[in-house]
């Protein structure tokens, strides 16, 4: 806010005082506006409370949390995923959404199959339709072991 030298030289004392007060106020407000703009920018850039979802997938748990014939439901991108330790110990992951009407399926260790509670859809442990109304097998998602960690990766 540089002042105009020509106008300052001819101005009376009182006017000069008022004007410098105005200058001060203007400078202060401009500084305030600038500072106000800095706050959101800094807060925006500071680490968020919850980190974003990784690009790779979701950790379903430790390998030893999955004994043979056990299962667990985890969430990937807001979608339920059923991780099953099939007889023999292999881990497989399926979208837990029944292909019929989208209910969440569950693993039955006793019958070694995946069952839908809504309309009696039955799937084999490899996702195939065994019985009931589901029109197609469960969508399988890749499972990756990272050390002792079980990762379900986006299909």
């Amino acid at each position: 806010m540089s002042d105009d030298p020509t106008s300052r030289s001819g101005a009376p004392e009182a006017k000069l005082g008022r004007r410098s007060l105005l200058d001060l106020a203007l400078t202060a407000t401009a500084g305030g506006v600038g500072a106000m703009a800095m706050i959101p920018a800094l807060r925006f850039a500071s680490p968020p409370p919850r980190p974003p979802l990784g690009a790779t997938g979701v950790v379903a748990g430790r390998r030893d949390e999955f004994p043979e014939r056990s299962a667990k439901v985890v969430t990937l991108d807001g979608e339920p995923v059923l991780v099953v330790a099939v007889p023999g110990g292999d881990l497989r992951a399926f979208s837990a959404r029944c292909t019929h009407l989208g209910c969440i399926v569950a693993y039955s260790a006793e019958r070694e199959q995946i069952e839908c509670p809504c309309h009696g859809g039955r799937f084999a442990a490899d996702g195939r339709v065994l019985a009931g109304p589901p029109p197609s097998p469960l969508r399988e998602l890749p499972v990756v072991l990272r050390g002792n960690e079980v990762l379900v990766v986006r299909g």
Binding site: D4, S7, G10, L22, L26, T29, V33, M36
Partner: peptide, 28 residues
């Protein structure tokens, strides 16, 4: 909440502009 502050800035800047142009218009 930022709007009143910006409004204040506009008002002060307008005052300043008037003062500058009046001063220049007077003696110049």
């Amino acid at each position: 909440l930022a709007v009143p502050v910006l409004g204040l800035f506009i008002a002060l800047a307008a005052l300043k502009l008037r003062a500058v142009e009046r001063a220049k218009g007077g003696p110049g």
